[in-house]
């Protein structure tokens, strides 16, 4: 299977280790990962902030960059949701027939990382080792957008050495919401405060999720408060093995 990695512009710039982890896990499972260099951004920020015409060139760029792959994997639930749900909508609203066809054909081939592992590749044990206390925050796009359900937890439970602890009120939003965190900073911070209280209450060393954007928000708060709790994309946990010095 030709698997292309859609790293997302945010991970590309801020969290390259997450992309490397995806490559590591998939190669360990015997797959070849390709990285189309023409890729950039899915346009989620533009779309969610109301700048739809500005998102259209990015929709087109995505369709062109990923035209030739059987499966497209991305370590971001919100970007996967953007491509699958909203690219067709934008193509319908602003695009030509050609773009509409390309998007309709391409969007369903996009899989969030845990979806690809569990649903497409049928794997829950990826041979990882991570001897730490971990709690999992289901981001809104994982939980209610893509409905990943138990998939991330099934993968985490199979990790050797892990002490997986449940996060209280896990399903409530962390308060990030993209530009919401800037436009409604005080409300965002109030929501963050409650999320951090719940994270701290678990006694975890690490909080993980399927979206680095939410994790940067949660981790930024935890760091400011000097809690000593780290954040990690769950791909990086799944990539860890006995040999790692983590």
């Amino acid at each position: 299977m030709r698997i292309a990695l859609f790293i997302t512009c945010f991970n590309d710039t801020m969290f390259p280790e997450t992309g490397k982890a995806v490559v590591t896990v998939l190669e360990r499972l015997g797959h070849t990962v390709e990285f189309p260099l023409a890729q950039t951004c899915c346009g989620q920020m533009h779309f969610n902030t109301g700048y739809r015409p500005e998102a259209l060139p990015l929709v087109r760029g995505f369709a062109e960059a990923f035209a030739d792959y059987d499966a497209i994997v991305t370590p971001s639930a919100s970007c996967a949701g953007m491509v699958r749900e909203n690219h067709p909508l934008l193509a319908q609203q602003y695009g030509d027939a050609e773009l509409r066809a390309a998007v309709a054909e391409g969007a369903p081939r996009v899989h969030e990382f845990t979806e690809l592992l569990v649903d497409v590749l049928g794997v829950t044990d990826v041979g990882a080792y991570f001897p730490h206390r971990v709690t999992y925050h289901p981001t809104c796009h994982s939980l209610r957008g893509l409905r990943l359900g138990d998939k991330p937890l099934a993968l985490l439970r199979a990790v050797r050495g892990i002490d997986l602890v449940e996060l209280p009120a896990a399903d409530s939003c962390c308060g990030f919401g993209g530009t919401f965190a800037l436009k409604n900073a005080e409300t965002s911070t109030a929501m963050l405060g409650d999320k951090m209280r719940n994270v701290v209450s678990t006694g975890a060393d690490v909080v993980c999720a399927a979206d680095n954007s939410c994790l940067m928000h949660i981790g930024g708060g935890l760091s400011r408060l000097r809690t000593g709790i780290g954040t990690l994309h769950l791909a990086e946990i799944l990539a860890s093995t006995q040999g790692d010095a983590r």
């Binding site: 590309d12 981790g219 930024g220």
Partner: peptide, 19 residues
Amino acid sequence: AWTDARDTPAPPTESFRAW
């Protein structure tokens, strides 16, 4: 509005695409 309540990691010197 962002940095009042949160630390932010400095962007790494090498992006994924560069790596």
